[in-house]
């Protein structure tokens, strides 16, 4: 089941709070998406609708042209791992995996056991005794071994230490290469996960800020530094994300690629042009207005 996901005017409300606000989005199948947004930006609500964990307050979502809500074929092929982890706390790790294997036709129990080994998580340990990082690992194992055509991972790497995160990224990429599927990964650790993304979706306060190929986004932002007057002249008519001054020197972060003529002009004006990474760009796109 490799299918397109289409969201139209999606709104999720909790009483008076609007978590997702008229969001429209098209997701082509078989890609790894990075879903980026600050805390409370509506990421989890959006994923909950994609996973049929809740109905949208208004708007539509279709997966392969059909409404996924209570659709047996679609829901069976969807795996949503929340940071709160939906497992039986009294169970042992091995039992949690066996339970998933019983219910999910696509679940690879042997692969799950290999992943436990790789991460160093004992199958005999009870869920209640797991540390924050170990819970995150269990979530990652469940999400990977489910091999669901639509895999939604919400902040799964958050509690892991640096070594576990590196293992997680490597396993995610390796299994994705072997079993291509649609993966939506929401994370705050943008810098270290960014190279896995084919496309990046940035949402802020429930609205779509940007949906772009990750590699197009890299180098989409530039910083221009130099004498204040020259910087001001140069940035006129461009999208300025942020500005900083120190004495007579000004640094401006611009959104948009510079062509060769722009670069030559900046050079002639004595300006220094530098690149901006995806994480910096994200901070500028979602941080300034609050």
């Amino acid at each position: 089941m490799i299918t397109d996901i289409v969201l139209r005017d999606l709104t999720v409300r909790y009483g008076p709070t609007v978590a997702v606000d008229g969001l429209s989005l098209d997701l082509a199948p078989g890609k790894i998406y990075g879903l980026l947004g600050r805390n409370g930006s509506g990421k989890t609500s959006l994923l909950s609708v994609l996973a049929s964990y809740r109905r949208p307050s208004s708007g539509t979502v279709t997966v392969g042209g059909v409404n996924p809500f209570e659709n047996r074929q679609v829901m069976r092929q969807t795996c949503f791992v929340r940071d709160t982890l939906d497992v039986a706390d009294s169970d042992r790790v091995g039992a949690v995996l066996s339970f998933a294997a019983d219910l999910r036709p696509t679940f690879d129990r042997e692969y799950a056991a290999r992943l436990l080994d790789t991460f160093g998580l004992p199958a005999g340990q009870r869920v209640t005794t797991l540390s924050r990082g170990q819970r995150s690992i269990l979530g990652a194992v469940l999400g990977l071994a489910a091999r669901a055509s639509l895999t939604l991972l919400d902040e799964v790497s958050l509690g892991m230490d640096a070594a576990a995160r590196t293992t997680f990224y490597r396993e995610l990429l390796a299994d994705y290469l072997a079993y291509p599927r649609t993966v939506v990964l929401s994370t705050h650790l943008i810098e270290e996960a960014a190279e896995l993304f084919e496309q990046v979706i940035i949402i802020d306060r429930g609205r779509l800020v940007l949906h772009e190929e990750a590699d197009v986004l890299r180098g989409r932002g530039v910083t221009v530094t130099g004498p204040a007057a020259a910087v001001e002249r140069f940035v006129a008519g461009r999208t300025v994300l942020s500005e900083q001054s120190l004495g007579g020197v000004r640094a401006a972060t611009l959104y948009g690629r510079l062509d060769d003529a722009d670069a030559a002009r900046a050079d002639a004006d004595g300006l220094t042009v530098g690149p901006v990474g995806i994480q910096e760009l994200f901070v500028h796109l979602t941080g300034a207005q609050r």
Partner: peptide, 10 residues
């Protein structure tokens, strides 16, 4: 919750 999390419909 546990069954829904494993792809079972309500």
């Amino acid at each position: 919750k546990l069954y829904l999390a494993n792809g079972v419909t309500r």
